[in-house]
């Protein structure tokens, strides 16, 4: 198990080098020169030249790539737009991103899995019908729109939660108050897809022969559902959660915009708009690392859920 983990962690290195190279090539191909965009209407040829020299844009391709990679690894990579180190700019936002991603994951799992299981067990009941209706709505309505509705309801009308911004770490009262609405909004899509998947996966498993065996053994229905059916149904659900979690870290840009949430996603978009190459490079690489690590965690969870899976 440990050996497997080590191997997977080592795999991270070529993956990230590959990502960084592709990223760098894309940034090269994208039209737009950071110095000109940055200077905007104050642009003069001299100023452009000075900036290019300052950030080493006049060096050849491979030199710049290696320089950027080295500076990224040593933490010396400097953003053009923010005039600060990439690592500290991203670092400040990473907490906000992870807090938002994890809380919405927790909400989603707590709501979606029980809903999916109950809907499957009580197939064609009112509960099944209503919960799957909500799930369909949840998938169809974009999360940012749900976000706006939540703000209107909970901030403007009821005035329970603040409408936007980051209030501090999640364990402080202000931090939690600011975190709840965006996390709820972000979790809706995941709740919807996960509960639907749990339901159909449960229904598939419940047709299996070994459940018939369990029943004929005289096991209690509760044990059959929770121990035999649920654990087996959980594998595809977990895969789905893994993918969605990765999406939450990097793809919560719309939610971050609506809630003025200082996350890495929004930062990366800003960096692209300003052609801030070092910042694009740094923020996307860190997001990719998060993606890979969260997938690794999911893979390890498989073992816990299903003993038949082993990585040794």
């Amino acid at each position: 198990m440990f050996g497997y983990m080590l191997k997977r962690m080592l795999w991270l290195i070529p993956v990230l080098i590959g990502v960084s190279l592709i990223l760098f090539i894309i940034m090269e191909l994208v039209p737009g020169d950071p110095a000109t965009i940055m200077l905007g209407t104050n642009v003069t040829p001299e100023a452009v030249e000075a900036l290019n020299e300052k950030f080493g844009f006049d060096e050849p391709f491979h030199v710049r790539y290696l320089l950027m990679l080295r500076n990224f690894l040593t933490g010396e990579l400097n953003s053009i737009y923010y005039n600060d180190q990439v690592i500290s700019i991203v670092g400040r936002r990473l907490t906000a991103t992870i807090e938002l991603g994890l809380l919405s994951l927790i909400i989603a799992v707590l709501v979606a899995i029980p809903t999916g299981v109950i809907a499957a067990v009580k197939k064609n009941s009112i509960f099944d019908f209503i919960s799957m209706l909500f799930a369909t709505i949840g998938i169809s309505v974009p999360a940012f729109f749900t976000g706006i509705i939540f703000i209107y309801l909970f901030s403007v009308r009821l005035r329970i939660f603040p409408s936007s911004g980051y209030g501090g770490p999640f364990y402080t009262a202000a931090g939690m108050r600011h975190l709840i609405l965006p996390a709820l909004a972000l979790s809706t899509v995941m709740i919807a897809s996960t509960s639907r998947l749990t339901r159909s996966s449960m229904l598939d498993v419940m047709k299996e022969d070994y459940l018939l065996t369990a029943r004929s053994k005289g096991l209690k229905e509760k044990v059959i559902i929770l121990k035999h059916a649920f654990r087996n149904a959980l594998i595809p659900v977990l895969t789905n959660i893994g993918n969605q979690l990765a999406m939450m870290f990097g793809g919560a840009i719309l939610i971050e915009s609506v809630f003025a949430w200082p996350g890495v996603g929004r930062l990366a978009v800003r960096a692209v708009e300003y052609r801030d190459q070092p910042l694009v490079f740094g923020s996307i690489l860190i997001l990719s690392a998060l993606f890979v690590i969260s997938n690794l965690v999911i893979d390890l969870l498989y073992v816990l859920i299903n003993p038949r899976i082993s990585y040794d």
Partner: peptide, 10 residues
């Protein structure tokens, strides 16, 4: 969001 922040007094 800015509009709603104004309305909620934020």
């Amino acid at each position: 969001t800015q509009a709603m922040e104004l309305r909620s007094g934020g």
